[in-house]
Design a binder for these strands. Sequence first.
DNA 1: GTCAGTGCAAACTTTTTGCAACTAC
DNA 2: GTAGTTGCAAAAAGTTTGCACTGAC
Lengths: 164, 164
Amino acid sequence: MDKADGLAQARQNLADYLRLNSLRNTPERNALLEAIYSADAPVQAEELAKVMSEGRRLRISRATVYNNLSLFEDAGLVRKVFQDDRILFERTDKSKGVIRLVCDGCGKVTEMSGDKLRRQIAQLRTRRFNAVGWELRIYGLCSKCTAELKRKQNRLNKKDKDKK
Amino acid sequence: MDKADGLAQARQNLADYLRLNSLRNTPERNALLEAIYSADAPVQAEELAKVMSEGRRLRISRATVYNNLSLFEDAGLVRKVFQDDRILFERTDKSKGVIRLVCDGCGKVTEMSGDKLRRQIAQLRTRRFNAVGWELRIYGLCSKCTAELKRKQNRLNKKDKDKK
DNA sequence: GTCAGTGCAAACTTTTTGCAACTAC
DNA sequence: GTAGTTGCAAAAAGTTTGCACTGAC
């Protein structure tokens, strides 16, 4: 499924959700959905609010952005993720699964493939839970922070020895 | 490693970190560390600030709480996790790994065992990254929300049929 | 004694709420 | 026409900052 298809599908899902719940299909909602689905990375609510309030065709207020991000969450179109020390919204259809290495030292997040493990996670059976996607977060230290830590520990040891 | 040992170890790590960086080992820092390591669930910064400002022996201000949570993060003693729609701090020594089922419908988080998968994750090799812990988040719908969705979809279909 | 650390209050960022005007249905 | 929706502004929630005083080393 490419990006455009993803948006088309999401639009349809939104329309269904709105109709189902007797809510209205406003231009603001469609513009917001498109903004999120066109971005190639998760977006921050405040940032999105800022961009949307400056739109050419349609100027959307902060309140409307926040209201509809919640609605999109309820509709299963977007979800919140915590990344780079902020809460971001990402489309739910993007990836079935992702493995992220999160450095406890500098906070940097990198993604890795791990195809074998992916397959095993996909095979995991979850009772009474209808799984659609996953995220494996591996915490630790990146090579840079590991090296820095060692340097510091060496200094500490030296300090101790000097005291004696 | 039981809880008390974890705290003792953390205290030592804190002392080392402080000495190494020429920072001071204050009673406030130790009280905060103990508060976090004594809690049996991740804590919210604001909540912790409130509790600590009402302490009997020691009253710790909001600024000090926030300052030191950052310091503890730098020292690798705690980390931020996003849970229940809030950012919480958890001790880093607590769990080597956890599998969480996150419902996109109601937001409920439940943990599962998945021993087989755990072993496989533990065996994962990460190049240039020194892994110490992990969290597998599986997104989807819990049984309750799945049922509710089906009910709604039935209503939608009925609506369509009625129109014809 | 010195300088990092603390408490306090003010500033800032992000999110929520109340209400009048608007519009999709 | 009518209720859901939007925009605005004010309030709330969460976090950071500046500065004078304090206390760990």
